[in-house]
Each structure stands twice: as structure tokens, then as C-alpha cells.
């Protein structure tokens, strides 16, 4: 199973469980790292370190972003201060599920950083120059979600 497939399962399962929304794959085209950094939408970035070294960037349509954060706050729009905490938790759970599965499959460890929220138009900080780049694109009845996976697999524990 590929890294991309593990993240696909995790995002679909977690979105269904936490905010009761079905994600459907869409045919959007992957864009390059510079475009990802320059997107004008709400975005979240989370990194992994260890066997999987990755930067994961999630791009939300306005409708999807507010649906997720409102639903996680029992249908009420969170305050501006709390908004990032809700979307951080969504990404933390989805990516944590994926990384846990990869850890168990490979017997090697990767760890997650605390996610970071980017307002519309705020440029991303950090290097997106990784060996592998994968892309997941979803439609739903309540907006769009894209997940960019920039990663490399670290073989430092091979042969142990």
C-alpha cells in the first residue's frame, strides 16, 4: 500500500467520523510547490519526522473550512481565536491516523508536529522540496479539500 493510499483512507474515515461528511475523489490537477505556497485559500500545514519525513499541506474551500470548524464546535462558528484550534485538531487526527498505520505497517517510527494554520493569502513557511510529491483531491456536498503530500522515506533503520 502506498503512502498516498494510507492518507486517502485516513482523511475519508476521519472526515466521516468527526464531521459526518463523505469525501469523493475529484479530478483536479496537482500544482507545483510554489503554487501550493501561493494559494489564497485557508490552509493547514503539518510535518512528520522519522521514517516518513513530510510536509503535508491541506487546502480547504471556504465552504468546507467553515463546515468542518462549525460542526466540530456543535454547529456554532468558533471565535477567531479558536478557529485554528478546531482545524488543527481535524488535521492532527487525520494525519495521526495515517502515520500510526504507516508506523505499524513498517515497524518504524514517525512523529507529528503541532499543525499550523494559514489564513487566506498568508504565504507558507518551510521547504516543500522533497523527493516524493503526491496529491489527493476531494469534492463533497459541502465544498472541496485538497491534500498535498511532500515527503521522503528515511531508510536509516533498514537492516536492523
Amino acid at each position: 500500500m502506498e503512502v498516498k493510499d494510507v492518507f486517502d483512507d485516513a482523511f475519508c474515515d476521519v472526515t466521516k467520523k468527526i464531521v459526518k461528511l463523505d469525501l469523493h475523489k475529484s479530478d483536479e490537477k496537482m500544482q507545483d510547490a510554489q503554487a501550493v505556497s501561493d494559494f489564497q485559500d485557508y490552509r493547514e500545514m503539518i510535518q512528520t519526522q522519522g521514517y516518513v519525513n513530510a510536509v503535508i499541506v491541506c487546502r480547504f474551500s471556504n465552504e468546507m473550512f467553515h463546515y468542518i470548524t462549525n460542526t466540530m464546535n456543535n454547529g456554532v462558528t468558533p471565535s477567531g481565536e479558536e478557529l485554528p484550534l478546531y482545524i488543527n485538531e481535524y488535521i492532527n487526527i487525520a494525519c495521526g491516523c495515517a502515520i500510526s498505520r504507516i508506523n505499524d505497517m513498517t515497524g518504524q517510527l514517525s512523529r507529528l508536529t503541532v499543525p499550523r494554520f494559514y489564513q487566506c493569502g498568508e504565504p507558507l513557511e518551510g521547504d516543500l522540496d522533497f523527493r516524493e510529491q503526491r496529491f489527493l483531491s476531494y469534492d463533497s456536498r459541502l465544498g472541496k479539500l485538497q491534500v498535498y503530500l511532500f515527503y521522503s522515506l528515511n531508510d536509516y533503520e533498514e537492516g536492523k
Binding site: 467520523k17 492532527n92 487526527i93 495521526g96 502515520i99 500510526s100 498505520r101 517510527l109 512523529r111 507529528l112
Partner: peptide
């Protein structure tokens, strides 16, 4: 949200017994 066997080992290594996954 990290609830793999390696994380559980880390939890046990500091003397705790219980780790449950998010969600």
C-alpha cells in the same frame, strides 16, 4: 491521534498503562 504500537511502548516506558486513540 498517534496510537501505533511504538507510541504505546513509549507510553509504557514512562510507567503509564493507558493510551487511547483520537477519535
Amino acid at each position: 491521534s498517534l496510537c501505533d504500537s511504538g507510541t504505546l511502548e513509549e507510553v509504557k516506558s514512562i510507567g503509564l498503562k493507558y493510551l487511547i486513540p483520537k477519535p
